[in-house]
Write a protein that binds this DNA or RNA. Structure first.
Length: 820
RNA sequence: GCGGGCGUGGUGAAAUUGGCAGACACGCUAGACUUAGGAUCUAGUGUCGUGAGACGUGUGGGUUCAAGUCCCUCCGCCCGCACCA
């Protein structure tokens, strides 16, 4: 497979080729990196197939959206980290799948089309080519034969197919709900895409808009999305953020009499029901309009409802004090004690959570307390403790003023209160979630068409599987409109379809899917990317799944990461994938900031372009610097000066080759340094402590630099250890050492703990915990010898003079502490 | 408010998980080689002190022969969620 021509850069033999290199003393990274990238590609060095004789390892990084700006220095932090891990695993004999692709649907391409008229498919293609060129120039070990593109019909055919599965199982449904509408992007957003009441993408303030939307019932999976986290090796902050986002709370639903109707509330503290002094409905609650004619103050009520409707969620949450209006004319009755209590509407009660109505316990909830103070309502303490003349008492205490609950603690009180409600038919225990169903419609062009048609007679119907993929039609222009109609509504004939059920006329859905759709299952497609019969074969899924290690940004924790776990679980329930979770291990990298600690952005003009760095210092230096920049999981500041330090190091490694003497045998000291380094680097890569893995390589190189001549074995080990970080340089020097194999296919060196052991150790000697000197003793010295050596130090003698030695603590190979 | 995390030199950071604090690198200082240097090499570099030495991991306390590491107190910073009943 290897052609000497490719390997030896056009020269007939290794000897001839080597001669040319001997003339070149400078580290010519341009030449080296280009050469090895060409050879890897020609030899398909990173191509991977199912091989049941080998243990598989599936490494995954989040595939990029191919923006016009190209790669920034943040992408390669994640990609290099898993490239290092993948390369090491490969050398350790694993069958490694490390794929790359493009999450290619999205708004920027569409906005660009609106501005320039260039079809999104055209600009996306150009951007993907640019990204591919950049990624290849960094020398990642991706299997490019598996590259996927979510905007290609061969791919989104299966995204649409899966949507139909959601529909068939009743998890995709159309509903008219108040959604988050971004007036700037003119598109509806999922809850997860709203940050502080603003559009995650453009920052415009989100407003409420009632629209018919496709929804996917992710809430049905809420409990499993929490409980199944237990068995996963996810970093803690990812787990806790997901749990937090899903927001499970246990409590009860209680029915209060409201006129001759029933008003149901959700509460996490039914045991405080004897402290209820009033109730509050969200202004949007259905009872407000339903009983408007029976209220004594309808004008006042309607005015408040209208005022609230005008406010954004952000404004609503920024209220300084509590506002509201009493619903005069109808009272409620507390089912626990029969008390008649007033009912209010207030915007501090949210329509989307629980039942949109609450029982207010002002003594033990600060919000209710504030409202009660503002409206002069009674405050009844039912838990002992605190000082409710000042503020609500929100901690736990024994029940008081609570009839049969008196004296009970929280746990018993809860149980007793719910039992009583159940027995008397006015309540039941209930679990509530903050998580909402997934708003799945986007009023946009550049996304997957939703494969549904509407028939007047039969309602919404999925198109037959034989018609997939339902490809995007051409449209005269890409503008969305203010009414929230997708550009696809201008697609003319495309809109007309036949109802698959009755054969009558039907109209196509014109909304498209959110950009999270394609990325929700892309890791499955990598297993079998060219399959045109299935989204992936059972054989491929059985062999490759799960993803063993997934690295990506924290910003996707409650978006992509949650969506894709849910999507995968759904496919599992359908019997389509073998596992219930997609990712075994999830880690996350810190952001890379500009030199002054600011975020890199086009507007600040502080963006570092990887192309420039690679051109000036080479891909190997760039890769190594990204790994050395700081702890992988923390934010890091870019520094040109630190980059220079890494460049110097790479040059040093290159220069050491001149000292290699193949006739020389390594000394025991040499071997000790080598094995120490092997053990350190191996261990630190596994733990993602890349910065310290690099520093131990530096320490080793400093050791080798101090020698006149270097035994070949020592340099070879260095090259192997460096090959995951600086693959081009390692490959080059490996060839110059006279090898005609690829170092990336060589085996990873094995560290020998016994050989790494020092036979003479330096031990610290303390007197009463204070450092007074060091002793050098053989590693296996007896306790007596160590004590004798320690007590023999001049400095120690001086310190203990005239004092009685009470105790000597000896920790072998570490420390001696003389207590006097 | 709730949840997660952090605090170590001039700077980025290490510390085998309770055992010589500051590895590695940047920067700086001095010197060498240079026509020159964002090049290279050598030495130094936590603070105070000529020195022996003393002090030193945000604050104050505790456990221990021994604490950056464990426990308690307070202060400060970052991230996520946030009127979620």
């Amino acid at each position: 497979m290897t052609t000497n021509n490719a390997r030896y850069n056009g020269k007939a033999s290794f000897e001839e080729w080597k001669k040319e290199w001997d003339l070149e003393e400078r580290y010519n990274f341009h030449k080296i990196e280009e050469k090895w990238q060409r050879i890897w590609e020609a030899e398909k060095a990173y191509k991977v197939e199912i091989d049941k004789n080998k243990e598989k390892f599936y490494a995954l990084v989040e595939f990029p959206y191919p923006s016009g700006a190209g790669l920034h220095v943040g992408h390669p932090r994640s990609y290099t980290a898993l490239d290092v891990i993948s390369r090491k695993k490969r050398m350790q004999g694993f069958n490694v799948l490390y794929p790359m692709g493009f999450d290619a649907f999205g708004l920027p391409a569409e906005n660009y089309a609106i501005k320039t008229g260039v079809h999104p498919a055209v600009s996306t293609k150009a951007n993907i080519e640019n990204f591919t060129r950049q990624l290849k120039s960094i020398g990642f070990s991706f299997d490019w034969d598996r590259c996927i593109n979510t905007s290609s019909p061969e791919y989104y055919k299966w995204t649409q197919w899966m949507f139909i599965k959601f529909f068939e199982k009743g998890l995709a449904y159309k509903d008219k709900i108040a959604i988050n509408w971004c007036p700037s992007c003119k598109v509806g957003l999922a809850n997860e895409e709203v940050v502080n009441g603003c559009c995650e993408r453009c920052g415009a303030q989100v407003v409420r808009k009632n629209k018919e939307q496709w929804m996917i019932a992710i809430t049905k999976y809420a409990d499993r999305l929490i409980s199944d986290l237990d068995d996963l090796d996810f970093i803690e902050r990812v787990k806790s953020q997901q749990v937090n986002w899903i927001g499970r709370s246990e409590g009860a639903e209680l029915d209060f009499e409201f006129g001759d109707d029933k008003l149901t509330v959700f509460t996490t503290r039914p045991d405080t029901a004897f402290g209820v002094t009033y109730m509050v409905l969200a202004p949007e609650h259905e009872f407000v309009q339903k009983y408007m004619s029976r209220f004594e103050n309808p004008a006042e009520i309607q005015a408040y409802v209208d005022e609230t409707a005008k406010k954004s969620d952000l404004q609503r949450s920024q209220n300084e004090s509590k506002t509201g209006v009493e619903l005069k004319g109808i009272k409620a009755k507390n089912p626990y004690n029969g008390d008649t209590i007033p009912v209010f509407i207030s915007d501090y009660v949210l329509t989307g959570y629980g039942t949109g109505a609450i029982m207010a316990v002002p003594a033990h909830d600060q919000r209710d307390y504030d409202f009660a103070k503002a409206f002069n309502l009674p405050i009844i303490q039912v838990l002992d403790g605190g000082d409710i003349s000042q503020h609500a008492f929100e901690e736990d205490g024994p029940h008081i003023n609570s009839s049969f609950l008196n004296g009970m603690n929280k746990e018993d009180g809860m149980r007793a209160a719910i039992d009583y409600a159940v027995k008397n038919g006015f309540g039941r225990s209930k679990v509530n979630y903050k998580l909402r169903d997934w708003v799945f419609s986007r009023q946009r062009y550049w996304g997957e068409p939703i494969p549904m048609v509407y028939c007047e007679k039969c309602g919404w119907q999925p198109i037959p599987e034989s018609e997939l993929p339902l490809t995007l039609p051409e449209v005269p222009d890409y503008h969305p409109n203010d009414e929230g109609e997708s550009p696809l509504s201008k697609a003319g004939d495309w809109l007309n379809a036949t109802c698959p059920k009755c054969g009558g006329h039907a109209r196509r859905e014109t909304d498209t899917m959110p950009n999270w759709a394609g990325s929700s299952w892309y890791f499955l497609r990598y297993c079998d990317p060219h399959n045109d019969k299935e989204f992936a074969s059972k054989e491929a899924l059985d062999y490759w799944m799960n993803v063993d290690w997934y690295n990506g940004g924290m910003e996707h924790t409650t978006l992509h990461l949650l969506y894709s776990r849910f999507w995968h679980k759904f496919l599992h329930d359908c019997g389509l994938v073998p596992t219930k979770e997609p990712y075994n291990k999830r880690t996350s990298h810190g952001m890379i900031l500009a030199e002054n600690g600011e975020k890199m952005s086009k507007s600040r003009g502080n963006v570092i372009n990887p192309d420039d760095i690679i051109d000036a210092y080479g891909a190997d230096t760039f890769r190594l610097y990204e790994m050395f920049i700081g702890p992988f999981d923390q934010v890091a500041m870019w520094s040109d000066e630190s980059l220079m330090g890494v460049y110097r190091f790479v040059n040093k490694v290159y220069g050491l080759f001149a000292k290699v003497d193949k006739t020389l045998q390594p000394s025991t000291d040499d071997l000790r340094q080598m094995h120490k380094t092997i053990l350190d680097v191996t261990d630190r890569i596994d733990q993602m402590k890349f910065n310290t893995a690099v520093s131990s390589l530096m320490t080793y190189v400093n050791y080798l630099s101090g020698k006149e001549k270097i035994a070949a074995e020592l340099y070879t080990a260095l090259l192997k250890l460096m090959s995951p970080f600086t693959p081009h340089l390692a490959e080059e020097m490996w060839a110059r050492m006279g090898n005609d194999t690829l170092i990336v296919a060589e085996s990873w060196p094995k560290g020998d703990k016994a050989l790494a052991q020092d036979n003479v150790v330096t031990m610290a000697v303390q007197v009463c915990g204070k450092m007074r000197g060091t002793i050098e003793v053989p590693a296996e010295s007896s306790r007596e010898d160590i004590e004798k050596a320690a007590l023999n130090l001049d400095n120690v003698k001086r310190q203990i003079e005239g004092r009685e030695i009470k105790k000597i603590i000896v920790v072998p190979k570490k420390i001696v502490n003389i207590v006097a």
